[in-house]
Design a protein around this nucleic acid. Structure first.
Lengths: 203, 203
DNA sequence: CCCTCATTGTTAGGATTACTAACTTTGTGG
DNA sequence: CCACAAAGTTAGTAATCCTAACAATGAGGG
């Protein structure tokens, strides 16, 4: 077989490269699952993501601009999807008196039902995790959090809400102990949050 | 603040849920990085992915049908992208005498150059991995491989090329030792492959 | 009280993605 | 040799997601 024209180097991959390749595969799986789910409900992928997000987050985050940052898209794209979701009767706009430019996006009853059903699309991911030892799970999570923190620092991701980037978070010199100044409590490793409602980004 | 209409349950997340959420964020980062890279080269995301894949894989995998399975898309979608890449002079079609229906997709010189440059788009991911301890890296990789294996078994992902799903692979009862019947060699954990050119799927 | 500037969300227009369905051509197996 | 499978293409469609220009409102300073 002729192999002269593809790099042999690639086959002697470092662990890092393999991790990146694996993450890429998993990223693809997310895309596929999302596509399937959206087809089942006659929605688009982005519409499904919005519905799920709305179900789990509080008012100040349920706005067009926030969603645009959250999903790394332009306001135009989100605005379009919101219009469609409104026409389908899955969300409604709640204008606030103090700022009439903006509105809070509310899920309707029908919207909540669908969001709850589509939220299940991550269940395929849960099964293989069950088999991991608790310690392995924690280490896996910590590694992933480290990757996210770096991606945020590099400007790839604009928004996230985990302890490592929060003003209320303190850590010991060896980074093994954690403390939340808002809760006024020490945090165990398992207490560290990925999506904290009280998160305030460090500047 | 009114929180009656979003679930408090969600805030007390299990480690599993946090892992899924983290993976989702990383998946998003891949999408963003891919978009940026493609804009830089005036290509579409899928075109970039195809170029990178072609750079690293051998002839029998450089066909329209294989790419369609690889990326979980229809042949029509791939066929379209290939047409565009050919017009841009980045690939060429090499018809084989034994089957004139099919052809091998070859990268042109220009195509290889661009593929090599865009391959760098994963470098953002490498930086945070450098800081992990070697042992942590291995455990991270093993965990991710476990997830991929499950996704493949569940039919979410159709193609992958890692040891765990290969006919040549053998493992000890406690799953701590590994052996490749093709190389006729034991494999260390760091030898386990994510994208092996010799991979043959177990049936 | 203005004037400027920033912010919120919308619209219009366009390239790209990615699908289904129908099709052509070629290979394969009874 | 005939039916069927497989490889890739085409056409048509809906959705994604962008940029750019826009209207309306809010905020701050003189």
């Amino acid at each position: 077989m002729d192999r002269s024209d593809f790099d042999l180097e690639y086959q002697n991959q470092s662990t890092e490269s393999k991790i990146v390749a694996s993450l890429e595969r998993i990223a693809q799986a997310f895309r596929v699952l999302l596509w399937q789910e959206s087809k089942d409900f006659s929605l688009s992928p982005i519409q499904v993501q919005i519905l799920i997000f709305l179900l789990h987050h509080s008012e100040e985050k349920r706005k067009v601009s926030y969603l645009a940052d959250e999903f790394n898209m332009t306001k135009a794209t989100i605005s379009d999807s919101i219009k469609t979701l409104e026409q389908k009767g899955l969300i409604s706009k709640a204008y606030e008196p103090q700022d009439t430019r903006s509105f809070i996006i509310q899920l309707t009853k029908k919207g909540k039902e669908i969001a709850a059903k589509t939220s299940m699309f991550t269940k395929e991911l849960h099964k293989p995790l069950d088999k991991l030892l608790p310690g392995d799970k924690e280490r896996l999570l910590l590694s992933l959090m480290g990757i996210i923190r770096h991606l945020q620092a590099a400007g790839v991701i604009t928004i996230q809400r985990m302890c490592a980037t929060c003003v209320y978070y303190e850590t010991s010199a060896n980074k093994e102990k954690h403390f939340c100044r808002l809760l006024k409590q020490p945090l165990r490793t398992t207490d560290l949050r990925v999506d904290c409602p009280e998160h305030e980004m460090i500047t």
